Computed example of a mutant assay.
Amino acid sequence: MRMGHEPPATVNASAQTLLTARSRERARQALRCLPFALEFYSILERGALSSTELAARPDWSDLCRSQLNRSRTEDQLIWLIQLGVLRREVDGQGLTERVRLTPMGRELLLAWPAGIPPASPAQRLHHWLRRRRPRL
């Protein structure tokens, strides 16, 4: 081993830790930018919910900062799945359209017991760019 170089296992562990930190920060930012309120995630912690069920709920205004149709809701749920905040529920037939909160999602939400703080305009722009142009 040459002087000044870390062994491969240490480099891989460092890279994995950095990747995990970046993933968590990206998910944390998304939670602040997306229209879902803390109550929405609390419901998902207790049980699964589909985009159709969410769009049809009479209490949607308690769950979202703005009303979403089924298609727009599904887009937001897919983004949260990609970030690792949500996962699809599985039944005997395979994956369903219903989603649940992941352990990482639960962990991130612990930081905001009184509610998810809204993102600043700069954070919203950064999130929008990160979501639509991930390679920039």
Rank of each mutant, 00 (worst) to 15 (best):
G92D: 09
Y41T: 01
Q82V: 07
A55Q: 00
A37Y: 09
L49C: 11
R65S: 11
V99D: 01
P103L: 11
D91W: 08
R100E: 14
R57L: 13
G47M: 01
Q82R: 15
S51G: 11
R28D: 12
Q67K: 11
R98Y: 07
T102E: 12
E45Q: 10
S51N: 01
L80M: 12
P35S: 07
F36D: 13
I78T: 15
Q82D: 15
E25G: 09
F40M: 05
G47N: 05
A30G: 09
L108A: 13
A48H: 06
D62H: 13
S71F: 03
V90P: 00
G92L: 08
E25R: 15
L44G: 04
L108N: 11
R70Y: 01
A55I: 05
T96G: 13
S50E: 10
F40S: 03
R26Q: 15
P35Y: 07
V99M: 09
E25V: 04
A27L: 04
Q67D: 09
E89K: 15
E74D: 04
E107L: 11
L86Q: 12
L77D: 00
L49T: 04
Q76E: 08
R88A: 13
L31V: 08
R72S: 12
R88V: 08
A30M: 12
W60D: 11
L80R: 07
I78P: 01
S71P: 00
I78A: 15
G92Y: 03
